[in-house]
């Protein structure tokens, strides 16, 4: 899923300062799973902002609504009925959600309340880790199910580097060396000899296309 974290409240307050009627829009998908922008967080942020405005004696209307998916037009359109009441939207969607709302209502300023971080996995309660860069050409079968692009600090396809010690990454002592894990996995599969081959340079055109990448599925189109 896509992970995100809420921006510091001061930064959010600064961004919304020019507006008087604000819709705080949450999203019930990925950012709800990572406890950053779901219904609960949206409610909490809206009431914090209302309280802060009240303390400052400001006359501001702040209301909230959480969509099931902020990045899908079918859901975004649910804002139609109320959007005219507001002069700004504070979105707790990921970067894609924020842009989907902006696309649908280009006349209203939209403000991101989250910092969108990465494609990751929920490791345990309250712990999310990045494990995919969305490179457009998955190689996980080759590397024992461990992504060297997302998980090796130097994105080595022919690792490990010379700094891997005791299973820890040289760049960050809090991070396991991805290559140590790759080697262990391949040992399990008796496929270590795979690492004697030089893995060729990555085709980055599959990630950095000319402009934003697109997926077109005619069978899905009406």
């Amino acid at each position: 899923m896509i992970t995100a974290e809420q921006k510091p409240i001061e930064e959010i307050r600064e961004m919304i300062a020019p507006y008087k009627r604000i819709l705080v829009a949450g999203c019930g998908s990925c950012v709800a799973e990572c406890a950053a922008g779901g219904e609960k967080e949206t409610g909490m942020l809206a009431s914090t902002l209302r309280m802060a405005a009240k303390m400052d004696g400001k006359d501001v209307v702040i209301q909230e609504k959480t969509l099931d998916r902020q990045c899908v037009n079918e859901f975004v359109i649910q804002l139609d009925e109320s959007i005219d009441q507001y002069d700004a939207v504070l979105s707790l969607g990921c970067g894609a959600g924020v842009q989907a709302v902006a696309e649908m209502y280009p006349e209203i300023p939209i403000i991101p309340a989250l910092d969108t971080e990465f494609l990751g996995e929920t490791m345990s309660q309250g712990l999310w880790i990045e494990n995919c860069l969305g490179c457009g050409d998955c190689m996980l079968h080759y590397f024992g199910g461990v992504c060297p692009l997302a998980r090796c600090s130097k994105q080595l396809l022919n690792g490990p580097c010379g700094g891997s010690m005791d299973g820890i990454c040289e760049v960050n002592p809090e991070v396991p060396c991805a290559w140590q894990t790759i080697i262990e996995r391949l040992e399990n599969f008796k496929a270590l000899e795979r690492l004697e081959e030089v893995y060729p340079p990555k085709d980055w055109s599959k990630k950095q296309g000319r402009g934003p990448r697109k997926i077109i599925r005619e069978d899905q189109q009406r």
Binding site: K154, Q155, N158, C161, G162
Partner: peptide, 28 residues
Amino acid sequence: LSGDHQGFGNQPEAAGVFDLDSIQFIQV
């Protein structure tokens, strides 16, 4: 060489490139 990670130096905000790794570079 791969090089020390950019986070260690005096430009920790730099983007690391790592387009090729050192072994691919040797081959090139």
